[in-house]
Design a protein around this nucleic acid. Structure first.
Lengths: 158, 158
DNA sequence: CTGGGATTGTATGCAATACAAACGAATAGG
DNA sequence: CCTATTCGTTTGTATTGCATACAATCCCAG
């Protein structure tokens, strides 16, 4: 939102700050969503290097903990992932003995997912790290702004 | 933010809407950023199937157009990508003759990037599609809300 | 002017995510 | 009972991201 005069001589060795002049692309909402997501993703990754968990993996464990016996398809719908993507994530978590699959007693096509003890422990650790990560995000906002931001974002993903 | 009673019997065949009860994870800001980004990304991809361009590719072409002769490192800094990632994207665009590399006259280490005619044409098409995509995003907000959202998001990515 | 350190581009490899297409097993509905 | 649909699975492909290593170039101290 600021005017700079280096439009035509960007080829020269002008020092750019981090938020240097970007051009009209700066007015695109999707552009800011992508950058914000990237910043969040990077900080999340740093916070979770010790736990070796990704956002998706934590989300899946969290949802399985809140919905024991959930099927992969329901999991995927809640997190907006297709079946194949859900598979690979569940596979990884199962390989690490963080959760297990059982045949659903009510529908033979479905798998019922449950956290294993190791998964419960990992999720507990993850929630601590999440709290830290959330504080990092929220540190730049008032409570009212956080509320506003979540409402606006929710409107995008329905 | 609504209470549902299927916490304990999610294993039964309960119909879930898209925004079905998620649990406490629903209060995590990062979670909503990720979902909103995913929704944006999917709509973007649909809008751009004909052009065969990704968000990153469009962003790179757009910035090169606004900053002719920009180096890869400056490009990467503006879009928060590391050198290797920037490389692969520039490689792909160069292979499609959308942009070209020239040695920078002022710094022998740098490449100066310029759009090729095919790239100008593709970018012009892309901007039309972006407009459509932006309308999709903005359709659920007032102008004031859009402004608020962008300001809040900008605070996250600095 | 020269040598060492920093920067830039390049190349390679690995991991995570995303989606499409296909298949088999199981279910649901007429 | 037959057919269409759903769910899980497998396979393949593409994009993105990061780490590492290397060569060329630049910059600065001495």
């Amino acid at each position: 939102m600021r005017v700079r005069d280096d439009d035509l001589d960007a080829v020269t060795t002008v020092e750019h700050e981090d938020d240097a002049y970007l051009g009209e692309i700066n007015d695109i909402v999707g552009f800011h969503i992508r950058l914000a997501h990237g910043a969040c993703y990077r900080h999340f990754t740093e916070t979770f290097t010790d736990l070796e968990l990704t956002q998706k993996q934590v989300s899946v464990m969290w949802l399985v903990a809140d919905h024991p016996g959930i099927s992969q398809i329901d999991l995927g719908q809640k997190l907006r992932m297709d079946r194949a993507t859900t598979m690979t994530i569940v596979n990884r978590l199962q390989a690490r003995h963080y959760l297990r699959r059982e045949k659903s007693p009510t529908d033979g096509r479905k798998q019922a997912l449950y956290l294993e003890p190791a998964g419960e422990a990992a999720l507990a650790e993850a929630k601590k790290a999440i709290r830290e990560h959330e504080n990092w995000v929220k540190s730049r906002f008032t409570d009212a702004e956080v509320k506003t931001l979540m409402e606006l974002l929710a409107r995008i993903h329905e």
